[in-house]
Design a protein around this nucleic acid. Structure first.
Lengths: 109, 109
DNA sequence: ACTATAGTTAGCCACATGGCTAACAATGCA
DNA sequence: TGCATTGTTAGCCATGTGGCTAACTATAGT
């Protein structure tokens, strides 16, 4: 499933930092790599993963590759949480009613 | 970081399915494992990962281990998306203003 | 033309992941 | 007591991940 690779991509601090940086606007590979100690080829693997997963896009102009955030696929992952929480919340709602019925107690959130 | 292991845990369909199931209420390991072809020891690894990551909790009573969802740590990951989107949205807002200024055009969403 | 810059390709390495089987508890039931 | 159920432990295996160096390509600047 696509979610597999999306979450996999997000499970690395370097890649999350790159996404965060790209949230503020496009950047070249060099700019993106600069904050990290890593050798360039290592860093490029991360870029490659993010691109294969569809979380970023990149275009090379001259010898410079510029990356941009692909917000749509990030939203797909976020939707999983919304769905998940909807399921949980509906049950919690029921439990809540039950608890209120049985004990009259209030709960947090 | 905690997000590393949380996203790592979510990057597997079996584990996401388990979380989804637990969203509807507690279940024993046997009940959780039943939908999957996997051998029990393999499945237990997934349970172990979910528990180490703090996404579920489990208690053994007699020979039966019952698992429950730990919604709080799931929320931590969800928050990352919210933060991320906030950054992006603020810039998008700026770009939006810019675009409207320059072209008077409308955009989607 | 030369040199510096910005990536890229290839290949290596250690360790983590996700699956398996086989054998072993430990509890509950007849 | 004996047997079935429900996990658990140990150990194996193939593949994936995240890092590295060395060497190469391609563009830009002088």
């Amino acid at each position: 499933m696509a979610l597999d690779s999306i979450f996999q991509a997000l499970a690395d601090p370097t890649r999350r930092a790159v996404l965060q940086r790209l949230g503020r606007g496009p950047a070249t590979v060099g700019e993106l790599a600069e904050p990290f100690q890593m050798a360039l080829p290592s860093f490029m693997k991360h870029v490659g993963i993010l691109e294969r997963t569809g979380l970023i896009r990149s275009r090379k102009s001259g010898r410079i590759r510029t990356c941009t955030l692909e917000h749509k696929n990030l939203a797909a992952a976020e939707r999983w949480f919304a769905d998940q929480r909807a399921i949980w919340a509906s049950r919690y709602q029921n439990l809540d009613s039950l608890l209120e019925t049985l004990t009259g107690e209030e709960h947090d959130r």
